[in-house]
């Protein structure tokens, strides 16, 4: 437990607070010293830990795959190349099964989603106090009050990270919809379904109903995508934190939860990837 004089609530809150840098109404551009500070910054703030870890892990992923891609041989593959090829074939297979259009973007997009989310999720398996403690020591060395150094290592437990990705996917859904059906086709899809009638007058009456239903369907996609990943990982992280508070008993508890969490980590990465493919394939294909 970090800081022996903390109450349980403080401990949990401390762990769930991002390291935030932003425009504070009183002290200007600065690090947030508390959750209240971070809240006061509003939109004009950035979670330094989330950005750091997600970009770092993304770079690790790309560096790993790029180093293999550069010396990819057509001969007998070895070690790392085997692994990379396995991943690529797995993603390629999933995309081919689900997405029937032709696109150079979908497959690399899916690979990036799967690997990146997997790497971000797997940070959850690092003991919850380990990296924050390290950050506090580094913070103290820089002259900051250790109690005010917040550090969250799992980027996917930050709604900003998951929503950032799902909104990008949403933008792609819109782009593909309009590209394959045209703007009028897309609008028709939003307004003429699911209730359709040959009677022109009745149809006009039905348009608002259709629009409402279809807009909810459309907007539910990015929101559910982001919240599903965020919720799963946030809950998992919270349980790790709770386990970390029970003292010595945390060892037998931590292990089974970590093992179980490996499943969640992989599954959530896979689900995010699969749903992205499905949504994009729905966007490109003619509906109904």
């Amino acid at each position: 437990m970090a800081g022996n004089n903390m109450t349980s609530t403080e401990y949990i809150q401390h762990h769930l607070q991002n390291m935030t840098f932003g425009l504070h109404p009183e002290s200007g551009w600065s690090m947030a010293h508390s959750a209240a500070d971070a809240k006061a910054m509003g939109f004009w703030a950035i979670h330094v830990d989330t950005m750091l870890w997600s970009i770092g892990l993304g770079v690790v992923f790309l560096w790993l795959f790029r180093s293999v891609a550069k010396r990819a041989s057509t001969g007998v593959p070895t070690g790392l190349q085997n692994f990379v090829e396995m991943m690529v074939e797995f993603v390629d297979g999933s995309v081919r099964e689900t997405f029937h259009g032709k696109s150079r973007l979908i497959a690399p997009l899916s690979l990036t989603i799967f690997c990146w989310i997997f790497l971000m999720n797997i940070m959850d398996l690092v003991p919850v106090d380990f990296l924050p403690m390290l950050a506090q020591k580094v913070g103290a060395w820089f002259g900051a009050d250790p109690a005010h150094v917040y550090f969250k290592v799992v980027p996917t437990t930050d709604i900003n990270a998951t929503l950032g990705m799902s909104l990008s996917v949403f933008a792609l859904i819109l782009f593909y919809s309009i590209r394959s059906k045209g703007l009028s086709g897309f609008i028709a899809e939003l307004t003429l379904h699911p209730f359709n009638t040959p009677n022109k007058f009745a149809q006009i009456l039905l348009i608002p109903v259709n629009l409402l239903l279809e807009l909810v369907t459309l907007l539910a996609k990015p929101v559910s995508l982001a919240l599903r990943l965020f919720g799963n990982l946030y809950a998992g992280e919270l349980i790790f934190i709770l386990i970390a508070m029970v003292g010595l008993w945390q060892l037998p508890l931590h292990f089974p939860w970590a093992v179980f969490h490996i499943l969640i980590i992989t599954l959530q990465a896979f689900i995010f990837m699969m749903l992205t493919i499905v949504y994009l394939s729905m966007a490109t294909e003619e509906q109904h």
């Binding site: 910054m41 509003g42 950005m51 997600s54 993304g58 990146w116 990008s168």
Partner: peptide, 20 residues
């Protein structure tokens, strides 16, 4: 809190996908 991180993540995501 929804904040600039959202946009930063989206940009990072786009760059990673492009690189990939």
């Amino acid at each position: 809190n929804l904040n600039l991180t959202l946009i930063g993540q989206a940009i990072a995501f786009a760059v990673f996908v492009w690189f990939c």
